[in-house]
Each structure stands twice: as C-alpha cells, then as structure tokens.
Amino acid sequence: MTIATTGTTTLDRLPIGSQARVTGIDDKTGNADRLMEMGLLVGRPVEVARVAPFGDPIQIKVMGYHLSLRSTVARGIAVEIENASTTS
C-alpha cells in the first residue's frame, strides 16, 4: 500500500494528520447516503485522526467530530490532499 502525500487519493490511504477535502463518494458498499448525512460531503474537509491498533478501522475527523469507519468503506471516499501532515 502506498501512502500518498499530495494530489488525489482515497480516505483509507490518507496519512494521519493530513488535511483533505472530499471529492467523491462511491456507493459500492451502499453507505453513501448515510456517510453524507454524517457530514462526508463533496467539498468538505476531512482528516484521519488515527488508526485502530489492528490497522482497521480508522478514526476520522469530519464537521468537527470523530467518526470511525472501516477501510473498505473509506476506500470508496475520494479525497484531495490539501495540507500534508507535518507530524508523520
């Protein structure tokens, strides 16, 4: 798995601490509506806060609160990196 530092990637590959913006949600898992209702909207900022001890799920920060998603779901969320992390 490659970790992107700039450009477009998916949420599961976003490095911890990097600021990004949602560019699209793929509805393969059938969760797109709920993800949007939870604040993951195209154009909105999103950040990966941390990863669970066993590597999955991830904890993201969106609309100022924390949400946990599995990587399989996060893979369907396209993001554009805005501000690469300085900590990792």
Binding site: R34, L35, M38, Y65, H66, L67, S68, R70
Partner: peptide
C-alpha cells in the same frame, strides 16, 4: 445479509 456497516461516532 449485507456486510455489517461500521459507521460509529466516537463521542
């Protein structure tokens, strides 16, 4: 059924 969705708020 469909795979369990795990979308969980961490308050």
């Amino acid at each position: 059924g469909p795979p369990a969705t795990f979308i969980l708020e961490l308050p």
